[in-house]
Design a protein around this nucleic acid. Structure first.
Lengths: 221, 221
DNA sequence: CGCCTTCAGTGACATTGTCACTTAAGGCAT
DNA sequence: ATGCCTTAAGTGACAATGTCACTGAAGGCG
């Protein structure tokens, strides 16, 4: 494999001295995961830190009864602290990360991570910031699930998923898994949206017909 | 104020060299908060890290509509990373910390924190571990709220709050705020528990009459 | 004792979740 | 093209939870 310089991609490594960066590119492994495959999960806990070089990962949690909820998404340039957290806390967890696109990630051995966190302020702050973002993300999820109305949440999510697009290719089941609810509930609400001429539907596809209308619902709480 | 040595109380500082510990006790402030008072909140964001020396803090989030949910509790010896997270992420948040007992906390200026995190492995790991625990706590909250039944959650929470006790002094409203639901819902479920002779009630007090029975409900999902 | 505040109970209703189905759409093999 | 098969979506009945607008009850205190 070519030793390409991924360090410029991350806020925590871009500003490091050239020597340190060379050491990193030599130590870390680069992995590729195909769209749709699991990046990590309860059966597959990486022993190391990892950083998302390219692509997007969807992190979700699933219940015993088979329902599922999306916690947040990891974008290129960010690090995935959840696996780290679980290693540190030595706790089982039922969250998993799925590659939403083809993914290129950097896997940094724990030892190298520790050394870097100790020696480089920029890197350490980057990691703290990554933890913080996830904590804030989860606060938001809790707020939504505990206090939000399902129609508002769905409208929000549709707009988020369809940002800049005319349609979304997702099944009702997939949308239900986004919000941690049941497919039937999504079907009902989408039907309502359809009756109000905010969207139109066909198998596996939702087409926007009135984004401002959806936005009004999304912001009505 | 007496410069008492709080450093022995924390996993992240107990093992530090004596010189470092002296520097810390000189730099950090010790604060006291009375039972029931707010330790931090949206109007009151501490600019510094803080560590809980003694007492217990309840961290909760509240909705616009006035409902509230307890996220987790901070016990003596732990650090409070949420405020740190919010500083780092530069995000508004609507979580607040309330002293559940009289509280003694150590407030460490950001500068001292950074230096310590850079220089001392034990301290840095302690902070990472604290972040991790909170992340895991929140995963649990999301799981409960999104997928859990209210009777199961209430039974669990009653047992947790009443651990080792014969009764709990909490109003229905307070229990509702623990779980992020409405008072009426708690009243209904408690009534049901009463009919099944698991508890007995009087104004502001819930008395256990059958803890194993409650435990059975708590573990039935 | 009566007043007042806070806590708890109640019934009607809305929203959301669950269950057990049916119906429809599209892919694929013959 | 035709029928088969898998997956997606619709439906109605019901259960669980949340909301609203009240009423009633308990305890503190003048």
């Amino acid at each position: 494999m070519t030793q390409f310089d991924w360090t410029e991609r991350f806020a925590g490594t871009a500003a490091l001295p050239a020597a340190v960066r060379r050491r990193l590119t030599a130590t870390a492994r680069v992995i590729h995961v195909k769209h749709g495959d699991q990046v990590f999960g309860s059966m597959n806990v990486p022993e190391s830190l990892f950083f998302l070089y390219d692509g997007r990962i969807r992190v979700s949690q699933s219940s015993d009864s088979g329902r599922e909820i999306v916690l947040y998404r990891i974008e290129a340039g960010d690090s995935c602290v959840l696996t780290t957290a679980c290693i540190l806390a030595e706790e089982a967890y039922n969250a998993e990360g799925i590659a939403e696109t083809d993914v290129t990630a950097i896997v940094l051995p724990k030892l190298a991570f520790d050394r870097l966190a100790a020696e480089e302020d920029a890197f350490r702050n980057f990691v703290f910031a990554a933890y913080s973002r996830r904590l804030i993300d989860l606060l938001r999820v809790v707020d939504d699930v505990a206090f939000g109305r399902i129609d508002v949440r769905l409208a929000e999510r549709l707009l988020m998923l369809g940002d800049g697009l005319k349609e979304i290719r997702k099944t009702h089941q997939e949308l239900a898994s986004e919000l941690g609810t049941a497919r039937e509930v999504i079907s009902r609400v989408l039907n309502d949206f359809h009756k109000r001429e905010l969207i139109s539907q066909s198998r596996g596809i939702i087409t926007f017909t009135n984004k401002p209308g959806l936005a009004a619902i999304a912001h009505s709480a």
